[in-house]
Amino acid sequence: MTTRDNFGATTTADEVLDGIDLTGKLVVITGGASGLGQETARAMAAKGAHIVIPVRDMAKGEAAVAAIKASVADAEIELMQCDLGKMASIRAFAKAFLVQHDKIDLLINNAGVMACPHMTTSDGLEMQFGTNHIGHFLLTNLLMPALVKAAKAGGDARIVNLSSRGHHFDTVHFDDPHFEARDYDKWLSYGQAKTANIMFSVGLEKRLAGKGVHALAVHPGGIRTNLGRHLTEDDMAMLLKRMEENSGESIAFKTVEAGAATTCYAATAPELAAKGGVYLEDCHVADVDDADPAGSVRSYAVDPGNAEKLWALSEATVGETFSY
């Protein structure tokens, strides 16, 4: 029997949300039109949440909504146009959103690009760092008034940033985040971006904890979703082999239902109230460990000094300073 005391790698999003009432809660989920984001949206909609999904492709978003409503007939889901690879699109989305909604209870930064060939965003940023981190950095800061308002109203406002054990691949290269002075490596790029997602959580927690808004980073686990659309079969075999070697046992990729569980746990678990700035995996807060290959969070990812360097770099990149 699954209980809150024994959540783990195979726990599903529905099990995590058992007994949780999200009625009246507004949840924004980037990347909610497929994969883990779609499952997170479905599971939370089933608990009464009003879901807003920023989408680049509205047709794809509509198909996802139809799939969710086939499972949760009364799901409240709203689609809004937003491309995380375009700062102008992010700004337009945030402006339109704040006209329609004055509070956000949960912001789930789930969208991402994984191990793609060298590409740049429309603003000239390296694609993985530019989309996975900078896009979410700008989006989160522009939506912050709505999160703070929800917290002031007595809500448990949280930000969940999807990271990965891939952050073990590399730290953030503050002097060259866009591979302008070094050869591009898709895995080092992915590792840098996923480390940035954790550092961002640490930076947010420092600035927002006093206002009742908390930020957490999560590793969902190894899952086959369209996040891996750029991966070859050799890439997939390498990842599975690495996972097995690190764990010391034969393992399989998680289901999407289990993959979304840690996100849902970080967003809603009563036992995590006011416990931000941490990294979770398999529905538990991970230890800080620089040697453990099978899990844990690397110290460079949760280092406050690194978080501040990233914040300064990110503000310079988007051309805006944020204060709360």
Rank of each mutant, 00 (worst) to 15 (best):
K241T: 15
V113K: 10
A59T: 02
A9D: 06
A33D: 14
M144E: 02
K194L: 12
D289A: 08
D156W: 04
A9I: 05
D21R: 08
T30S: 13
K25V: 08
G305Y: 09
I20M: 10
L162H: 13
S323A: 09
M236L: 12
H168E: 03
A294I: 04
V172L: 14
A59G: 04
A151G: 08
T120V: 15
G166R: 11
C82D: 03
L98R: 09
F137R: 05
A261H: 08
T23G: 11
L84R: 14
K186N: 15
E244A: 03
V113T: 07
V285T: 07
A88P: 06
E257F: 08
K275Y: 00
F200L: 13
L240G: 08
I51R: 01
P220M: 03
A75I: 07
L231Y: 12
I159C: 08
T131G: 13
V213Q: 04
D170M: 10
L147R: 01
T232Q: 10
L216E: 05
S89K: 12
G130E: 15
R158C: 05
P145S: 04
T321M: 09
K186T: 15
I104H: 00
R182T: 13
D234M: 03
K186A: 13
Q38R: 00
P177T: 09
A41P: 08
T2P: 11
A9Q: 05
G154Q: 03
L204S: 13
V160M: 01
V285G: 06
K152R: 15
F129G: 04
I68T: 02
H136L: 06
D74P: 04
N109M: 00
G166Y: 13
E205S: 01
L125C: 06
A294P: 06
E244P: 10
L98C: 01
D74W: 04
G31L: 12
S299N: 10
A260M: 02
L98S: 07
A269L: 02
F253G: 09
D303Q: 11
F253L: 12
D170F: 01
A43H: 04
P270I: 13
E180Y: 02
T11S: 14
D234P: 03
A43Q: 12
K186L: 12
V256H: 00
Q128K: 01
E245W: 11
K149S: 08
G124K: 07
N141A: 07
A59M: 06
D57Q: 12
G228R: 02
E15R: 05
D235S: 12
I51E: 03
K60Y: 09
D170L: 04
D83C: 08
A70V: 00
H173L: 15
I51A: 03
R298E: 04
E257V: 10
D18K: 05
L216G: 03
E281L: 03
E308N: 07
D183V: 10
L26N: 02
E62W: 10
M119H: 02
A96I: 06
H178R: 03
M243T: 04
L36C: 01
S323W: 04
F253K: 07
T321F: 11
L139M: 00
M238I: 09
M114R: 08
T3W: 12
K211W: 05
I223V: 14
R298N: 09
L313T: 01
P220A: 09
L310S: 06
K149F: 08
R4E: 00
E249D: 08
L125T: 11
L310A: 09
L143G: 01
T263P: 08
A266P: 11
